[in-house]
Design a protein around this nucleic acid. Structure first.
Length: 469
RNA sequence: GGUGCCGUACCCAAGUGGUAAGGGACAGGUCUGCAAAACCUCUAUUCACCGGUUCGAAUCCGGUCGGCACCUCCA
């Protein structure tokens, strides 16, 4: 079986053939740490995780590199734009490095809760300024740069294949700018490699460079760091679709202009999560974070499951109703597996091979451009197949969960909160009432306990109480 | 203005020219004092609309309508 992936570069699904025999280099654009990640950001990391796990399942080792953008960037391209990091720092009255640390930690807490595997290399932009400067020097030596107004620009006209990734025509007129064009640019598509002319006061993040004290442009960090850790040519570069036309286009230009080689073989982009009004943005509407979902009673893995239900290249509209559906689905899955475990006898390896066809089918779907919805459907079908024993099913689930990452075989640990003595007393009274067949009293007591925020469940072994979510 | 993507049941969603996966919700049933949970059953003669190609189209081609994203920091 071979993996096929949609490559944005060719706009088609291609067989995946890594450059090296058993190691795959994969670079994923990481977060800009000036705020919490919203669940739309998280969707992208979720799809990248499925990609990585799938490749690993097929026997490769994945060198997974992710950057942390902790250098400030503009909130917009206009002259009055503010630096995001500086802005956050002002608002929180903390220095920029503290801000960066805080949101970086929060980010990895989120990804951990979602069972997203940690990258093998996590690199901060501020730790790699030297690498960026060296790359800019290389570009300068080859004549791809010019200095204007104190900044170093990349000249897109010097790179013939500029814009290939996104079918950008070289027609300057086609660009409708909603922003005042930087007068220093020779071509509107040129971009800054190094800023020396800070537009903001209190720019604390500055470094010395051959062009003067300043800070790097946004795009250069990904080129410099990915090449440092993965070499001048590597297999996969991921990110959100929004990066295709600017960020990734510019990365390709500066990387390939510097090395003269093909930089990345496969470009893989995840589509956006939308809310009812369209694109999810931090600036408008409900700011949907993973913490908010948890606060509303959802488990982080409910959100993972929700994402698995849609293809990564389709826009997905978030709604509480849809998330509720995912939660119910995941609960049913957990219940089914719980029952299988109760029914399962001691491991019997010889019979496990009978579910190979399901596991194969499951991975065929994943190998086909990460078709997680179909893979999930295969799981459900297998669970309903009465010709398979619980042992066989559990063995198959174990294999499938390597990519699903839903902790399917682990008991969900319930947060056991101590129940107050008053509540327990009410339950005792209710049990007594039930025994005396005084159901009116029993129901009244139930109502009181439920009013207090508890769930009352009668089981064959007695009455159980638990805190409602 | 330029570049892409999409329109499938109440909701989410797959679908690789051969006769509509899957999940949720709803409804009915089993169980139950009631409730909850669990389990079983059911749920699109039809894929936005109109033409065309084909023995055959949700899938291909053309058009119409509608939605979304990107072209600006953004996942």
């Amino acid at each position: 079986m071979r993996i096929s992936l949609y490559n944005t570069k060719s706009r088609s699904i291609e067989p995946f053939e890594p450059l090296k025999k058993d190691v795959v280099g994969m670079y994923c654009c990481g977060p800009t740490v000036y705020n919490f990640a919203h669940i739309g950001n998280l969707r992208t990391y979720l799809f990248e995780d499925v990609l990585r796990r799938t490749i690993e399942y097929f026997g490769y080792r994945v060198e997974h590199v992710m950057n942390i953008t902790d250098v400030g960037h503009l909130t917009d391209d206009a002259d009055d734009g503010e630096d995001k990091m500086v802005k956050a720092s002002k608002e929180k009255k903390l220095d920029v490095y503290t801000i960066a640390k805080m949101y970086t930690d929060a980010f990895f807490e989120d990804t951990k809760a979602l069972n997203i595997l940690k990258p093998t290399v996590i690199c901060k932009a501020t730790d790699h300024i030297k690498d960026m400067i060296n790359l800019i020097k290389r570009l300068e030596e080859k004549g791809h740069t010019y200095i204007a107004g104190g900044n170093v620009y990349f000249s897109t006209d010097t790179f013939e294949r500029y814009g290939e990734l996104t079918n950008l025509t070289n027609d300057h007129e086609n660009r409708v700018s909603r922003v005042e064009v930087d007068k220093n640019k020779r071509n509107p598509k040129d971009f800054v490699l190094w800023f020396t002319k800070s537009k903001f006061e209190n720019q604390v993040m500055v470094w010395p460079s051959p062009w003067g004290e300043g800070y790097p442009g946004w795009h250069i960090e990904c080129s410099a760091m990915s090449m440092k850790y993965l070499g001048e040519s590597f297999d996969i570069h991921c990110g959100g679709v929004d990066h295709v036309s600017v960020h990734h286009t510019n990365e390709i230009a500066q990387s390939e202009a510097a090395t003269g080689k093909e930089w990345v073989k496969y470009w893989i982009h995840g589509e956006f999560l939308l809310d009812e009004t369209g694109k999810m943005a931090k600036s408008k509407g409900e700011f949907l974070t993973l913490a908010l979902l948890v606060e509303k009673g959802y488990h982080p893995l409910d959100y993972r499951f929700f994402n698995l239900g849609a293809h990564y290249r389709s826009q997905l509209v978030f709604s509480w109703e849809a998330l509720k559906g995912a939660q119910n689905g995941r609960r049913k899955l957990a219940n089914t597996i719980k029952r299988l475990k109760q029914e399962a006898t001691l491991p019997n390896k010889s019979s496990e091979s009978d579910t190979i066809s399901y596991v194969d089918q499951f991975y065929t779907h994943l190998a086909n451009d990460l078709n997680t919805p179909r893979a999930l459907a295969t799981l459900w079908t297998m669970l309903q197949d009465n010709s398979k024993t619980p042992n066989q099913k559990l063995a198959a689930i174990e294999k499938m969960d390597k990519v699903l990452g839903l902790d399917l075989l682990n008991e969900q640990i319930k947060e056991e909160e101590p129940i107050s003595e008053e509540i327990l007393e009410l339950i005792r009274q209710r049990t007594e009432a039930k025994e005396q067949k005084n159901y009116t009293l029993a129901d009244n007591l139930r109502a009181i306990v439920e009013q207090a925020g508890y769930k009352v469940v009668d089981t064959p072994n007695g009455t159980e109480v638990e805190k409602k979510m």
